[in-house]
């Protein structure tokens, strides 16, 4: 396992694209968060806004880049034929996937932490000037406060779980384009379809089951009682999705020729 980890780390380290993509994920998260914080206004001070949620809106975009990183971690090996070398060197395929997941999770956690911290900081700087701050009765956006810390740390974990979910799906599908299509469809489609096509009860179930809506319940710091699912349980649902995807990917990796 140590050799497998070392091999995966070397592959990740020596690919210039991965680093740039992770940097892009962090920067994009902060930029989108800042842009949303810049346009949100609450002049009356009586809006149902959640400052933590607003300041972390960039996650919705950043996760797409994280998903690309995770999908490429395995699909690029299939497109270049590298996977045959990898599996020849480490014939135990479960070990390969586990090593890939572990090596992927580390840098993703770092990038996610950078993006989330930057987002919270920009939110803390911008939002009070727009009527959403401690002066208007909103909780302070400080990591010292329990719910904000939970939202921030949870968002970092959320992005790591998205990476694992993407890795699992890409392992199962092998083709990068198809995998990213499935991942992004899984993330963005459910809320759109729920709003346009479904009934209200379907809506609520969707909030409990869809990977993105359930997972991002972790960002809520106000109105917890109205959430379709509690924050940590929501993140648990996403973890379930990621585990299922990794399992499916692992089983298919075992069963199929590379």
């Amino acid at each position: 396992m140590r050799d497998a980890l070392h091999a995966e780390w070397t592959k990740t380290r020596t690919l210039p694209g991965t680093g740039w993509l992770l940097l892009a994920a962090a920067v994009l998260t902060v930029i989108v968060s800042a842009a949303v914080a810049a346009v949100v206004r609450c002049p009356s001070g009586h809006c149902a806004e959640d400052p933590a949620k607003i300041s972390l809106t960039g996650i919705y975009v950043g996760q797409a880049v994280i998903a690309v990183v995770a999908v490429l971690a395995i699909s690029s090996e299939y497109s270049s034929g590298m996977i045959r070398v990898t599996l020849a060197a480490t014939p135990r395929r479960a070990t390969v996937l586990a090593a890939k997941a572990a090596i992927l999770a580390g840098p993703v956690l770092v990038a996610a932490a950078a993006g989330v911290l930057g987002s919270v900081l920009t939110g803390r700087l911008i939002l009070p000037g727009h009527g959403i701050g401690p002066a208007h009765g909103y909780p302070d956006l400080s990591l010292a406060s329990g719910p904000v810390l939970r939202a921030a740390a949870g968002s970092v974990l959320y992005l790591a779980l998205i990476a694992l979910l993407s890795l699992g799906i890409a392992t199962a599908v092998r083709d990068g384009a198809a995998a990213i299509g499935i991942v992004l469809g899984l993330l963005y489609l459910f809320p759109i379809l729920g709003q346009v096509a479904g009934s209200s009860s379907w809506h609520r179930h969707l909030g409990q089951l869809a990977p993105m809506t359930a997972g991002l319940a972790i960002q809520a710091t106000t109105g917890l009682r109205n959430l379709p699912i509690s924050p940590w349980a929501g993140l648990g649902v996403l973890a379930g999705w990621a585990l299922a995807a990794l399992l499916a990917g692992g089983i298919l990796l075992r069963l199929r020729d590379a």
Partner: peptide, 19 residues
Amino acid sequence: RSAAAVTAVIAAIVLPYFF
């Protein structure tokens, strides 16, 4: 590149609607 291009185009069409 497939993965990057697919992400870019989905982000361009579906994400604005979602936001």
